[in-house]
């Protein structure tokens, strides 16, 4: 035990492979332990999963709202009512000019005659409109902003269009869309807050489970300490238990959310059809899945680490 005595240890390479071996063994051992106590394991995993389901589900909800609102944005149009003295030629000229501008996806010209026809059809006033001496409607241009524009950019475009000399009024009928975006922003923050809160809850759940586990293995810990196990060695199986809890909890949460989404998908699609849109429910992407599983596994590890750090050092042989 001093330099003069050869300690009873195998070689470095053997020890390294033994170290890896112990990791593998701790991993399998802790998994086997969970398997041998299916009821309590299932309960812990279910509690973790349900806890994670709320932020995960809320996130998915957000994603779908964003998807719908993206859909709505692509239908955003700016109506340009031209001045009454602008002729059809000039209107067509303006259309061609705007068409080439940046930030403009498409421009459609509705001539005053077309507009009147449309009005006649939709208003039901019919022939009574014939009594009008003159068509009171101006030529109108419908400008569709490029899809990559966000709301400030669309507002800029609106301003630019307003300044065209031919234009009388430029109108963006999307005040409500603005409000939706603000709400979405609030909801996005709420998702973050909820995720943080519920992550904390997962930490507590895993930490408490591991704490109980440590207490029930009191004697084993004492004995292994007495025969020279390092703290890292004793910690390992508990940390792996935490990792398994996190991993399985995350997987179950994902399954729950996906199943719920499947239950909602039918009516959702019907709703889409009612609005003549082929809207379909957005579910977790591969990246979302990886983040959910990665985060839940990390939470399991951190939770067990906290419990181990707090309670393992309290156990000393007496």
């Amino acid at each position: 035990m001093t330099d003069r005595h050869q300690p009873p240890r195998p070689g470095l390479l053997q020890r390294l492979s033994a170290w890896l071996g112990h990791h593998a063994r701790s991993m399998v051992f802790s998994l086997g332990k969970l398997y041998r106590a299916p009821a309590s394991t299932l309960m812990t995993v279910a509690v973790i999963a349900i806890t994670l389901t709320l932020p995960a589900g809320f996130y998915l909800f957000m994603k779908n709202i964003e998807n719908i609102s993206g859909d709505l944005r692509s239908t955003t149009r700016i109506s340009l009512f031209l001045k009454l003295d602008v002729g059809e030629q000039a209107a067509a000229g303006l259309r061609d000019r705007l068409q080439r501008q940046q930030g403009v996806a498409d421009v459609r010209l509705i001539s005053r005659d077309e507009a009147l026809e449309e009005f006649r059809a939709s208003s039901g006033l019919g022939d009574s409109l014939d009594y009008l001496k003159e068509n009171p409607l101006p030529h109108t241009l419908l400008v569709e902003p490029a899809s990559e524009l966000d709301s400030p950019a669309i507002r800029q475009l609106l301003k630019r269009l307003q300044q065209q000399p031919e234009v009388d009024t430029a109108q963006l009928d999307t005040e409500w869309l603005e409000r939706l975006y603000t709400l979405l922003d609030i909801a996005r923050r709420a998702v973050i807050i909820i995720s943080l809160l519920f992550s904390f809850a997962v930490l507590l759940i895993v930490g408490n489970t591991i704490r109980l586990d440590i207490q029930s293995r009191y004697q084993e810990i004492v004995v292994t300490k007495l025969i020279g196990a390092t703290d890292a060695f004793i910690r390992r199986p508990f940390l792996y238990s935490g990792v398994w809890y996190g991993l399985f909890g995350g997987l179950l949460a994902w399954i729950i959310v996906e199943l719920s989404a499947m239950a909602i998908a039918g009516p959702y699609q019907k709703l889409g059809q009612l609005y003549r849109s082929d809207l379909s429910l957005v579910t977790f992407s591969m990246g979302d899945f990886m983040i959910l599983i990665g985060a839940s596994t990390a939470l399991g590890l951190i939770g067990s680490w906290l419990a181990v750090a707090r309670h393992l050092s309290e156990i000393e042989p007496q």
Binding site: R9, R15, A18, Q219, E220, V223
Partner: peptide, 24 residues
């Protein structure tokens, strides 16, 4: 004697060797 009753005799006796990192 402080044996661990959740595992067989062999596993009890092998504990120090596992801690020291001996091969299987």
């Amino acid at each position: 004697h402080q044996l661990l009753f959740d595992r067989p005799v062999f596993d009890n006796v092998a504990m120090p060797l596992i801690i020291l990192g001996y091969p299987r």
